[in-house]
């Protein structure tokens, strides 16, 4: 019984201490010139879809949920966002080579068509990020247009 109490206390202390470890926020007020919105002529509706459903993990500006205030959730989110941006960063899209842009657009198309993105674990909490069939068609049509122009 004593052991249970002590280890509980230790965990509680760890939990409290861990709250003071800082994480850097992925947020920015400036839209860089390399942002896909500045690189290409993106229709308003497609822009809105990208911003609601993709930008949290694939740009330099995340709209954080409340639980980002609590560790270790903040770390998990930071890790997720870093991985997401490494894979595809819409804020940096214009700096990619044309070849890489084309590859990324193809992957965007295939991920959306196969319902792999946005992640279901993400849309579970962010209900508005879920793509409807017409959203998907709109994005895919635009992506195809850009691929053909490259």
């Amino acid at each position: 019984m004593k052991i249970v109490k002590i280890s509980g206390l230790v965990l509680l202390i760890v939990f409290v201490v861990v709250q003071f470890v800082p994480t850097s926020l992925n947020q920015s007020d400036v839209i860089p010139p390399t942002d896909i919105m500045k690189t290409y002529d993106v229709p308003k509706q497609v822009e809105a879809i990208f911003k609601t459903s993709c930008y949290d993990c694939h740009s330099n500006n995340t709209n954080y949920p409340w639980y980002n205030k609590v560790q270790p959730m903040a770390w998990l989110l930071e890790d997720h966002i870093n991985k997401g941006k490494e894979e595809l960063d819409f804020s940096d899209f214009g700096s990619y080579s044309k070849r890489r842009q084309k590859s990324k657009l193809k992957s965007i198309r295939s991920q959306i068509e196969d319902d792999e993105m946005p992640l279901s674990s993400y849309t579970l909490i962010h209900r508005d990020a879920k793509l409807s069939e017409s959203d998907k068609v709109m994005v895919v049509e635009w992506v195809n247009k850009i691929i053909d122009s490259l």
Partner: peptide
């Protein structure tokens, strides 16, 4: 807490 520490 165990769950949180574990996931971290």
């Amino acid at each position: 807490m165990l769950l949180l520490v574990g996931s971290f």
